[in-house]
């Protein structure tokens, strides 16, 4: 423990060692913490942390994908029949919305890299709007399922009014459907919070072409949310 705590101070002391090092420390921009060599290294370290977080996210959703694979194998006919209860139009629309939001957030980061703050602001706002549209569409989908009784586990009470589901235990499909889409939906919700924070910080003028790390990290997270949906959409809505 002591060693770890001592490390930053040692880095600070090392300023008086090689001449090249001293020169470098003189030209430090204010946003670079003293234990980083330069802005580039600091950004890379932050990105590495984000990628490791994304790794844990992939494994989190991996568990759900594994559950999907097992139950689909055991109830192939039922999955195929039950998935027809989902609205492909709404799912496809949401896919388009998420892809668009991924593009706008990527362009927002590009705009900040070029120092165009106003452009970043409206591109982040567009991303936020897409995230809201996604959740609104999801709300209407959920509402319809809840109304029909197409619910997980013991809450399932569908009466076959919109087409009969062939095969045993269709409530398993809806457990998987709600489990996966709700976990994804929560990520969209956290994405909205994260994007709002960086949007406010951008408006306050906290970022520049030299420092935009938080937008970059939120962008990486948002692309992952898009990536998960790219797999969820065909698995749930198209294949079943």
């Amino acid at each position: 423990m002591n060693e770890v705590k001592a490390a930053p101070s040692r880095t600070a002391q090392s300023v008086d060692m090689p001449s090249a090092h001293v020169e470098h420390h003189h030209g430090h921009p204010s946003h670079v913490a003293h234990h980083f060599t330069d802005s580039e290294q600091q950004l890379d370290s932050a990105k590495m942390g984000m990628w490791i977080f994304l790794l844990t996210e992939i494994l989190l959703f991996g568990g759900l994908f594994c559950a999907y694979t097992i139950y689909r194998n055991e109830h192939l006919e039922m999955f195929h029949s039950a998935h027809k209860m989902l609205n492909v139009g709404m799912g496809a629309f949401n896919t388009v919305v998420l892809i668009t939001s991924s593009l706008t957030v990527a362009l927002a980061i590009r705009a900040m890299q070029l120092g165009k703050r106003a452009q970043t602001i409206w591109l982040l706002a567009a991303t936020l709007a897409c995230a809201f549209i996604f959740l609104v569409v999801k709300y209407f989908e959920y509402e319809h399922k809840i109304h029909l009784g197409l619910l997980p586990g013991k809450f399932y009470h569908y009466d076959g009014s919109e087409g009969i589901i062939v095969g045993n235990n269709p409530h398993i499909f809806f457990s998987i459907y709600f489990g996966m889409t709700a976990t994804h939906g929560l990520h969209v919700l956290f994405g909205i919070i994260a994007i709002s924070i960086v949007l406010l910080q951008t408006i306050k003028g906290k970022f520049s072409a030299a420092y935009y790390t938080p937008i970059e990290l939120v962008g990486l997270y948002w692309h992952l949310v898009d990536l998960i949906w790219i797999y969820l959409f065909p698995l749930l809505y198209l294949i079943g």
Partner: peptide
């Protein structure tokens, strides 16, 4: 409870 897909 086992659902067999027919009307509950």
């Amino acid at each position: 409870k086992i659902y067999d897909g027919k009307p509950a």
